[in-house]
């Protein structure tokens, strides 16, 4: 349990940090000192021999500034254990060394070693051996999304007349190092075959061109159907683990949703219904939203609706005859006045 502090800055939006600050960089860096040992449980799997992965525990002497990668290298080079892990640059550029440490995706080259570590390969990708996964599902999805710039206007030659401001929307996604940390962290991908969601990483690749103003291709079908972007649950797990801090939800997924919506608003019933209800009443009535979004599908489960009604969870009176909030004219004015990007 973290310490409970009460000395806070009254203007900071996040007081909570004072209570829960024990996962700061400083705290993680100061857990070990020279002379200590790191206990690393590393996931092992050899497809020629094993039917499923298992853990093997190694004790590694801590040296100053030891990273997770240094622990892995010590096991293979110094202890001479024949096991497979992938890394190349060691400085957060190549994106090959991502693993899960104690259930959290990270670049092994960039995070400090901890006293006790469970080191596993990334999820949602087929296991090749030990900590190495096959990136094929990711690459296949990226190809499906056709992340190539399609010009509909003639190329004007170098230097291209485009400003940094105009490139901003696409620029966030361009920081991606293809490490697959977000692909592993995404809970929707836990559903496997039961979801068509492409996952965050392929969408980042798509955003690099789709949000580029030089791109002229209609990508709404790719975004909505091929990538099933509306199955994203907005949980921000991808943003949390992204080692290069791309705001994946707010600068990749949401702008792509906006693009798909703007091209064909009528086909995005849920979003249109949401806008309609807020515009007419100011607030959302969930039953009205579900009726508008799902149509007949919503009334196909009357038993559920009746259970909800009995408990007062839904109110048909409010749904069909609900009135608008006072001052609705001001809310409606926002809808009509706000046109361009702010």
């Amino acid at each position: 349990m973290g310490k409970i502090g009460h000395d806070f800055d009254p203007l900071s939006s996040r007081y909570l940090g004072r209570i829960e600050a024990h996962d700061s960089n400083e705290d993680r860096l100061n857990q070990l000192k020279v002379g200590d040992f790191v206990t690393a449980q590393i996931s092992r799997f050899d497809p020629a021999v094993d039917t499923k992965p298992y853990f093997e525990t190694y004790r590694v002497p801590y040296v100053k500034w030891m990273r997770v990668l240094d622990v892995l290298i010590y096991v293979s080079e110094t202890l001479g254990i024949e096991y497979a892990h992938r890394w190349y640059c060691g400085v957060k550029k190549c994106g090959t060394c991502a693993v899960r440490v104690n259930g959290r995706e990270m670049l092994s080259c960039w995070e400090p070693a901890l006293p006790d570590m469970v080191i596993e390969p990334l999820r949602h990708l087929p296991l090749v051996r030990d900590l190495i996964v096959d990136r094929e599902p990711y690459e296949r999805r990226v190809m499906e999304l056709k992340p190539l710039l399609v010009r509909t206007k003639p190329y004007l030659g170098l230097p291209e007349p485009i400003t940094d401001r105009e490139m901003r929307a696409a620029s966030y996604a361009m920081d991606c190092i293809n490490c697959m940390a977000c692909f592993s962290a995404c809970p929707v991908l836990d559903l496997g075959d039961q979801t068509d969601f492409s996952g965050p990483a392929p969408l980042v690749q798509l955003a690099q061109v789709a949000l580029d103003r030089r791109d002229g291709m209609d990508r709404s079908v790719l975004i909505k159907n091929t990538a099933s972007i509306f199955e994203c649950v907005s949980c921000y797990r991808c943003e949390e683990v992204c080692p290069v801090e791309i705001p994946i939800v707010s600068r990749v997924i949401e702008p792509l949703k906006a693009l798909a919506f703007a091209t064909k608003p009528a086909e995005n019933k849920h979003q249109s219904a949401f806008l309609d209800i807020v515009n007419s009443r100011g607030r959302i009535d969930p039953s009205a939203l579900i009726l508008k979004t799902q149509g007949l599908r919503a009334v196909l489960n009357p038993a559920r609706a009746i259970r909800l009604w009995i408990k007062g969870k839904i109110s048909p009176v409010q749904t069909f005859f609900g009135s608008a909030v006072p001052g609705i004219e001001y809310v409606r004015r926002l809808f009509s006045d706000v046109k361009g990007a702010l």
Partner: peptide, 23 residues
Amino acid sequence: YASASCTGSREIRAVRPELFLAL
């Protein structure tokens, strides 16, 4: 505030970011 509207949840936030800020 009785006249306060919806904050836009995830929907308005994504598809009309400018309106989201205003709300």
